[in-house]
């Protein structure tokens, strides 16, 4: 149990780091999300031409804007962490430090993630407060809110293991950012972050159900909007993916370490 102070301290340092690079943090994590939202708000207002009575795939303009507003909260809460440090640690050979420390590499980065996530919860709550006051969304019942936030925090771990896995590929790959961008481009499209999945062809949606993507944006947004999914199925699929990815990460790490210790990189 004496590892708890190590975790706490790492979490604390991670929060300090986020705050120290305040401008960076603002421009890198919050800015994109806000701009993205700004574009979508304008885009959809223009598509509906301000008419609140038209329905597109069952969405009125009000509902469509609410969808994207919740998308903003979900994105801030779930997917800010980039794990960029992780690949840098590997590429610059800083990994040796962890081999000497009595605190593992994955522990360090998971603790960093948790620290980061704490700041994100704070930001997401502030954002939620702001959009609730602006009237863009209907404020849901408290229990629904709790369910939505818990579900989204659960997703943030799925994001984390995916980013962690990509970060580990730095053992072999000079630029892991390319893979990260690919993941981002594909997932923001397939998760329903750009368009609600209701606008997608039905067959595609059926297939997507078995991938992790829709659970990253579409589902949590729907929960906040009061449409609760089959939790058992959703959590089941996600847990399956999470377990699979975590296992792969473990294998990749073992292989990478072998390479690292054998060749000294």
């Amino acid at each position: 149990m004496n590892s708890i102070p190590k975790w706490l301290e790492t979490i604390r340092i991670s929060i300090s780091k986020v705050m120290a690079y305040r401008l960076n943090f603002l421009l890198q994590i919050i800015g994109p999300t806000l701009v993205f939202f700004f574009i979508k708000y304008n885009l959809w207002s223009s598509i509906y031409q301000g008419d609140r009575t038209i329905l597109i795939s069952g969405y009125t303009l009000t509902a469509m804007l609410a969808y994207h507003t919740w998308g903003l909260v979900v994105e801030l809460l779930a997917s800010g962490f980039t794990a960029m440090n992780l690949s840098e640690d590997i590429r610059l050979g800083r990994i040796s430090t962890y081999l000497i420390y009595p605190f593992n590499f994955w522990e360090f980065h998971t603790a960093s993630f948790i620290g980061f996530q704490i700041t994100q919860v704070f930001i997401a709550l502030v954002t939620f407060g702001a959009v609730a006051l602006s009237g863009l969304i209907e404020v849901p019942m408290f229990t629904l809110l709790v369910k939505g936030f818990s579900y989204t925090l659960f997703i943030s771990f799925l994001w984390f293991v995916m980013n962690y896995g990509i970060g580990l590929l730095a053992f072999w790959l000079e630029d892991t950012w390319i893979l990260k961008v690919i993941l981002m481009v594909i997932s923001s499209f397939l998760s329903g972050a750009i368009l609600p999945l209701d606008l997608f062809p039905a067959g595609l949606v059926e297939v997507l159900k078995w991938t992790p993507f829709p659970y990253l944006s579409y589902y949590p947004i729907k929960i906040f909007m009061g449409v609760e999914p089959n939790y058992l199925f959703a959590i089941g699929v996600m847990t399956g993916w999470m377990a699979l990815i975590t296992y792969c990460n473990h294998l990749v790490w073992k292989k990478g370490m072998k390479l690292y210790t054998a060749a000294g990189m």
Partner: peptide
């Protein structure tokens, strides 16, 4: 100046 610790960081923010 940057002070160590979370409090210092917050202050510096």
């Amino acid at each position: 100046k940057k002070e160590a610790g979370l409090k210092g960081t917050l202050k510096g923010f």
